[in-house]
Every structure is written in C-alpha cells, then in structure tokens.
Design a protein around this nucleic acid. Structure first.
Lengths: 158, 158
DNA sequence: GCACTACACTTCGATATCGAATCATTGGAC
DNA sequence: GTCCAATGATTCGATATCGAAGTGTAGTGC
C-alpha cells in the first residue's frame, strides 16, 4: 500500500502519512455517505449546509462557504440542488441586494432533524475503533496540520 | 469551527474528530493540488494513476482501482482523460480480452518524472509542521481508523 | 456446444468541485 | 451625481465521482 517512491526517509514518511490520511477519510466516507444518500437522498455537502442552517440559523452563501470550505461557485450549485428539492430557499438581503440569505424550509428542517441523529450515531460507531484519547490526539494532529502554509518559493533555495 | 450539535461527549468528540480530519485534508489539498494543475495540467487522480504506473509498470484498470481507491466507472473517466492527453495508452490484454492494460507513454513518463519530485518536496514541506514522531502517530491513527467497519444494524439495539 | 454465471470495463445521468469570466450591487473618491 | 474598485453571487467549461444498467468476454456445468 505505501508508496514505492525512493526518496529520503523524511520524504517517504511525509508521503505515506498523507496517503494514510487520505485513505482513512475515503474509507470513512464510504461507510457514512451511502446511508445518507439511501435513507434521505442527500449528499455530504448538502448535509453540511443543512446542518449549518439548523444550528446557526439563516446564513448568506458567503458564510456557508466558510462553513463547508468550498468555493463560491460550488456553493451556488449545492444550494441550487437543495432549493430544487425544496429543502432551502434563497432570500435576497434587502439591505445589501448582492447577498443571498439561505433559509431552511420546513421540509429541510424536518429532513435534517430526521437524518442527523442517525448520522451522528454512525459517525460515533465508526470512530469508536479509536479510543477517546486517540480521537483527541488525532484531532490535535489534524488541527496542527491544518495550520500548514505554503512557504514562499524562496525557502526552497536553502 | 466545531459542531454545535448537542449530544453526549462521545458523540461530540467523534463528530469533531471527523470534522478536523476532513478539514485538514481539504487544507492540504488546497496547498498541493493547484501547483500540480498549474505546472503540469494534471489532477490529483491523474497523478495517482501516473505514479502507480511509473512505480509498478503497466496495470489493468482493476488494479488501478485498487491503488487509487475509486470506482471502476470513475477510473474509466480518469484514464479517458489521460489517454486523450497522450499520457497513457490502453492495450487490450490478449489472454483475457475483457481486460484493459494501461501503459505510460513516453510523454506520460516524462511528465511524471518532471512532476513528482517537486510534488514530494511540497508534501514534505507541508507535513513538516508535524514532527516526524507526530507524523508516525498520525499515520498509525489513520491506519487504525481505516479498519473501521460498518457494524450490522442489530448492534444498534444494545 | 449451450446456457449461465461471473467478471472487466463502459455508458449514462446525476452531483460535486474548481477557476476564470461575468453580472449586479455597493460604497468611496471626487 | 459619476466613476470606479471591491464584493457577493452566478455562469461556464472542465474534471471527478458515484451507482445502476449495459456490453462483451471468460469459464463452468451439464
């Protein structure tokens, strides 16, 4: 499974770590998303949007971009699909007419209320292959990784 | 950033751990993929296929599916795009005519040879926000997570 | 040698995802 | 008031990704 790349040990470690990270998330997604799709007909991104709206109230599309870490153009598509399914509605902000505020509809509210608990249960069940301490440590490492920045090219020259 | 979900602590921990895992990978992808795209015009999946072919030699599409953990239909698309770009070619297996063997072309070989070292360097640089020990531990936790299985529904009833 | 099952891959229709270009609106400079 | 730069969202064209259904080939049982 690990890379066959012949590099120095630090490079091999970094590559293999990234591969494991990527594969673990793929594996989790394969376990968690089909039930959402089959039982409620929604995707991961749609769940993210619905959950944010339920817990935080109506949000602008820009705010939703922040929440689900996707591009603006992607968010337009996801909200389009949710709107077509009658789960959310857009409302133009009267103060700033560039802004679209996204609201949960009663149907969307009902769906997320029905879908989220069992999703949480599945997540908890799947993550339970790690002890609670391991989950904390994994979270810490991921959080630290998330702070990585692309260094300026000049630093390549050292 | 963490979920607003009001559940028991175990559920909240599991959800937050998953969110951090997902966000860390998104953050890494945002750093690593644009350079690949800009400098060489290839995507992450295409890199995965080209790298596998370079290190392992010609592979069937089924074998490539195993390597990059994607569905067969997706692999068809990715190989289609690589083939259109002249980076790989398909060759029908003479012994079993159902099988397509994917080969690197000289152009593909040149591209992956040019692209991979700088990619590895970027990966190493970005992962270096973690110590080597932390990378090892992160890899171990991810590996363990990847062994998670969906439990049968009956186990929900305890 | 025929039928049937299994397997490798492709096709199809859908959603996700991005970046670049575009559109509409806002708010500031003047 | 007019121009202009910035901002929020959409559109466009591309690739990725899936599952379901379809195609063609292999191999098995009889």
């Amino acid at each position: 499974m690990p890379t066959r790349f012949k590099g120095n040990p630090t490079e091999v470690l970094a590559l293999n770590t990234l591969i494991k990270l990527s594969r673990s998330l793929s594996a989790l997604s394969a376990l968690l998303l089909p039930p959402l799709q089959k039982a409620h007909g929604i995707t991961e991104s749609q769940l993210g949007v619905l959950e944010a709206l339920q817990h935080l109230g109506p949000l602008t599309q820009g705010q939703l971009c922040q929440k689900i870490l996707r591009s603006g153009s992607n968010l337009t598509t996801v909200v389009d699909n949710l709107e077509r399914g009658g789960l959310v509605r857009r409302e133009r902000d009267t103060a700033d007419r560039r802004v679209q505020v996204v609201h949960l509809t009663p149907k969307g509210e009902a769906l997320i209320t029905a879908a989220f608990p069992s999703h949480v249960e599945r997540v908890t069940r799947v993550l339970s292959v790690l002890t609670l301490e391991e989950q904390v440590e994994l979270g810490r490492l991921c959080r630290k990784l998330g702070t990585a920045r692309a260094l300026p090219v000049s630093t390549l020259a050292h």
